[in-house]
Amino acid sequence: MLIDWFTVGAQVVNFLILVWLLRRFLYKPILHAIDEREKRIAKELADADAKQMEARKERDEFQHKNEEFARQRAALLSQATDEAKAERQRLLEEARQAADAMSAKRQETLRNEAHYLNQAIGRRTQQEVFAIARKALSDLATTSLEERLGAVFIRRLQEMDGEAKAGLAKALKTAPNPALVRSAFDLPAEQRTVIQQSLNETFSTAIPVRFETAPDLISGIELITNGHKVAWSIADYLLSLEKGVGELLKMKDKSEAPVKSQTEELQPESESH
């Protein structure tokens, strides 16, 4: 018989014991170790993933910050550039203004100098001309000239227009003091009489007159009473001439004011005179 039933039973028991022992000593510990390792690897992978995610996040954040920084820097730089430009513009403008002011001041000074020179020349010329005229007329003035002067004075009194005449008449009549007749030379008695008579005739009343000598009249006669004055003298003519020349000079000054260069402008002016 090939089958020994006792051995069969013993082998069954042996096999079952072997199953139990191997399960206890082989399969369970090995499978447990493998599971542990798998868990550990999975955990490590998860950790690595988490770390990678974190790193990516931090990198993104860093990049974002970097960009922000670059943007701010660019903004600051452009702001500084703009400010520098503005400052430069302002300084240039200031310098230009200062230069303009200096230039204007210089021009003004030049103009003033020219003006004063002009005035001085004009005044001097005027004075010289009048001095010459006065000297000539004084030299020429004689009694006969004075007589002629008296005649002219009388004619002018007579030729006075109505309104002026009435005013003067009123002034003569109401004046508390006698009317004053001034002349460059001492008038002779007959001439004084003629003037008295002509006054009386002209104003149809006896007018008290006081005669006075005033050499500054150069050559002429004037009647002064109560704020009114009737005069004729060469000095008057000279004064009016002087006035006319003065106005002429003033006009010239005005016309020269906007001109840049005094010398350039003075040249034609002087040529025209």
Binding site: T7, F15, L16
Partner: peptide
Amino acid sequence: GSLSTTTALALC
């Protein structure tokens, strides 16, 4: 190589 053992295993 014993039929007893293989029988025991087959019975199991």
